[in-house]
Design a protein around this nucleic acid. Sequence first.
DNA 1: TATGGTACGAACAAATTTGTCAGTTATGGG
DNA 2: CCCATAACTGACAAATTTGTTCGTACCATA
Lengths: 96, 96
Amino acid sequence: MIGGRWKLLILCKLENGKLRFSELRNQINGITERMLTLQLRELEKEGLLKRNVYPEVPPRVDYELTEIAKELVPIWSQLSDWGGKHRKLMDTQTPK
Amino acid sequence: MIGGRWKLLILCKLENGKLRFSELRNQINGITERMLTLQLRELEKEGLLKRNVYPEVPPRVDYELTEIAKELVPIWSQLSDWGGKHRKLMDTQTPK
DNA sequence: TATGGTACGAACAAATTTGTCAGTTATGGG
DNA sequence: CCCATAACTGACAAATTTGTTCGTACCATA
């Protein structure tokens, strides 16, 4: 469910609260609008995030983690710690 | 590093000790020899598992988790717990 | 009337990951 | 000599994921 190039990254950005589409786009280096849309849609379908549309002009939409996704936060933070600890291992694949 | 369709599965199988190539092949439903080889090679390069070749005939090779990979065990077991707890969420993608 | 910002969608192409299938090596047993 | 076995390897194809480029609706403002 959280596989692929962007999903974990998106979820992490939402760890500290709601973000708008454009905020996510700006914070995630290299993602295209298309990919962001696709991934957000999938995460929504999977029940990991909630999409809020505000009926304004210009349009405003934001995203937030569901309760279920919040339970994952401590887990991926452990993964992140592991990654930090064994950083050298990852040099083979981080260059890009 | 542990992304893709097979890697976590392979690592999980090795949680309780060494397994031979053929044992992995038999325990992992649906994997082809080619995929198993490729994934094992990558996991080895990444430093997550160790390959032992015994100079016998017929040939024997087995694989085991490295210390570093063992540190990941509790983490993916938490992921697994999370999955069990929210199983209904996953019905969308488990059918196959 | 023309322009701009926001959050997309659609058509298509490129790249990456998986899968299929047919070998290969090495050696002891019949 | 021929066969069987374990663990692969290589050529190629199919499927999946990502990326590129353009277009849309909406209304406010100049």
